[in-house]
Computed example of a mutant assay.
Amino acid sequence: MESGRLDVELAQRIADHEGVDAATLDPPLHDVVDVDALEALLSPHSHERTDFTGTVSFEYGECTITVDHTGAVSVRPTLEDAEAELATM
């Protein structure tokens, strides 16, 4: 993963999910998750070692964001929202 790009990827994916511009996310992404720490976990410097092979998930608004050890990002409705949507069908 290219350094400094995870925050852009996360913001864009969340904005796409919410149907808004990434620059207008409210609250700002950095108020919800420490993207620098997440990037450090996924892309350690060459002198550091990580055995991280899992996923990190957090909620933002009405969605759950999951980032895996490769940096792949998924954005899904929160479980509560998904269940409520199913109940109306």
Rank of each mutant, 00 (worst) to 15 (best):
E2G: 03
E2H: 12
G4P: 10
R5F: 12
R5Q: 06
R5D: 07
L6N: 04
D7Y: 06
D7F: 10
V8I: 12
E9N: 04
E9V: 11
E9D: 02
L10E: 03
A11P: 00
A11K: 02
A11E: 01
Q12C: 04
R13G: 00
D16N: 02
D16T: 09
H17Q: 12
H17V: 00
H17A: 15
H17F: 15
H17G: 13
G19L: 13
D21W: 03
D21I: 03
A23V: 11
A23K: 13
A23E: 14
A23R: 14
T24H: 04
T24G: 03
D26G: 13
D26S: 14
P27C: 12
P28G: 00
H30I: 04
H30T: 11
H30N: 07
D31V: 08
V32F: 11
V33W: 01
V35M: 05
V35I: 08
A37S: 07
L38H: 10
L38A: 01
L38M: 07
E39F: 11
A40W: 12
L41M: 09
L42R: 05
L42G: 01
S43P: 01
S43F: 08
P44Q: 06
H45V: 13
S46Q: 13
S46T: 05
E48Q: 10
R49Q: 03
T50Y: 02
F52R: 04
F52N: 05
F52L: 02
T53S: 01
G54H: 02
T55A: 13
T55L: 12
V56F: 06
V56P: 01
S57Q: 07
E59S: 15
E59D: 15
Y60L: 01
Y60H: 13
G61D: 07
G61P: 08
E62M: 14
C63T: 10
T64W: 09
T64P: 08
I65D: 04
T66G: 14
T66F: 14
V67H: 08
D68V: 12
H69S: 13
H69I: 00
H69V: 02
H69A: 11
T70Y: 15
A72W: 14
V73L: 05
V73T: 05
V73E: 06
V73D: 01
S74P: 00
V75K: 05
V75W: 02
R76M: 12
R76Y: 00
L79D: 03
L79W: 04
L79K: 08
E80D: 10
D81A: 15
D81I: 15
D81Y: 15
E83I: 13
E83M: 11
A84H: 15
E85N: 13
L86C: 10
M89F: 03
